[in-house]
């Protein structure tokens, strides 16, 4: 089977696309498993932000946090959802705990059908966290039945990212726990994130437990919170294996497209900005530096420089 022809989307998490050989498979179910404070919601926010950058339709279902709290959390990490979405308050939907069962079994399938009829190109769906849904169905058999049905509807609509709480004390880990078994079994891709809480480079790590139809990278990779990207996974240990790292970087390609469009703009200021951004992009390409180009082409300081 040729794994490389599968259509993929960028996860928006620095380094994850490299580990997944180019990103998440379109219309797949992806789980982020980790205990409290490991960064699961940040993963979800970076994923939705990437979707907004790429013009995807997005559906973020939060079962715990209010939209304003999530947006504030994203902003504090430099994930500027407000900048790319005008109706940012409509992006995230809070599902109240007493309505979870009704929502998952009736409303969500209906919503999926509605969106299908609207001919939406691609949707990024986030379930954050899936754990309250699992609590509503204590037996594994029931969980499997309900989740299979939900996943069928959702995967026909778009690519799903769900976060799953690992039920352990801080610093301990057990990915095979009963509470995580069913979603892991049914997911196409499972990313396990850990925080041992003892410091050091390998304190926070990321590991691909499984990824169907993908020859994913094995091993554990250091991970850290980064302003702008939300979360960054250090893949320097495998970078040498990639002939052209930039082909895995869809965000880079998207920005290159934007810069190209900008360079054809009637406004001379925008053309100059595009030229500067292009220089920065080429510089990054050669040196492998990490430059946030959204910053580069939208920063007021940069605009002032151009005016000067």
């Amino acid at each position: 089977m040729n794994m490389s022809i599968t259509e993929r989307i960028s996860s928006g998490i620095e380094g994850l696309d490299v580990l997944l050989q180019g990103g998440m498979i379109k219309n797949s179910i992806n789980s982020i498993v980790g205990s409290s404070g490991t960064g699961k919601t940040t993963f979800a926010l970076a994923y939705i932000y990437q979707g907004l950058l790429e013009g995807d339709h997005t559906l973020y279902l939060s079962f715990e946090e209010t939209p304003s709290k999530l947006i504030a959390g994203a902003e504090s990490l430099g994930i500027r959802i407000k900048d790319v979405s005008q109706n940012f308050t409509d992006l995230i939907h809070l599902v109240e705990s007493e309505k979870i069962v009704e929502f998952m079994t009736n409303i969500l399938p209906a919503l999926a059908q509605k969106l299908k009829h609207k001919n939406v190109r691609h949707t990024r769906i986030i379930l954050d966290p899936l754990t309250p849904i699992l609590w509503e169905f204590p037996s594994e058999r029931e969980q499997r039945k309900v989740l299979t049905k939900i996943y069928q509807h959702l995967s026909s609509l778009g690519t799903v990212l769900q976060t799953v709480e690992e039920p352990n004390a801080f610093g301990q880990t057990d990915i095979g726990a009963i509470e995580t078994r069913v979603p892991i079994y049914l997911s196409d891709t499972v990313v396990h994130i850990q925080n041992l809480g003892l410091g050091g480079k390998y304190n926070r790590t990321c590991k691909i437990v499984k990824s169907r139809r993908t020859a994913h990278h094995e091993g554990i990779f250091p991970m850290h919170f980064a302003h702008g990207a939300g979360i960054a996974i250090d893949t320097s240990s495998i970078q040498t294996e990639c002939d052209e790292p930039s082909i895995y970087d869809t965000r880079y390609n998207e920005l290159m497209k934007k810069v190209k469009q900008m360079s054809k703009d009637k406004d001379p200021k925008k053309r100059i900005i595009a030229q500067i951004a292009k220089n920065l992009l080429n510089d990054r390409h050669e040196k492998g530096d990490k430059i946030d180009l959204v910053d580069a082409i939208t920063s007021p300081q940069m605009l002032q420089e151009v005016k000067k």
């Binding site: 880990t173 850990q194 041992l196 003892l198 390998y202 790590t205 590991k207 091993g219 554990i220």
Partner: peptide, 8 residues
């Protein structure tokens, strides 16, 4: 090794 048994 990381102390939880993962090979670095």
């Amino acid at each position: 090794f990381r102390i939880d048994g993962n090979v670095i």
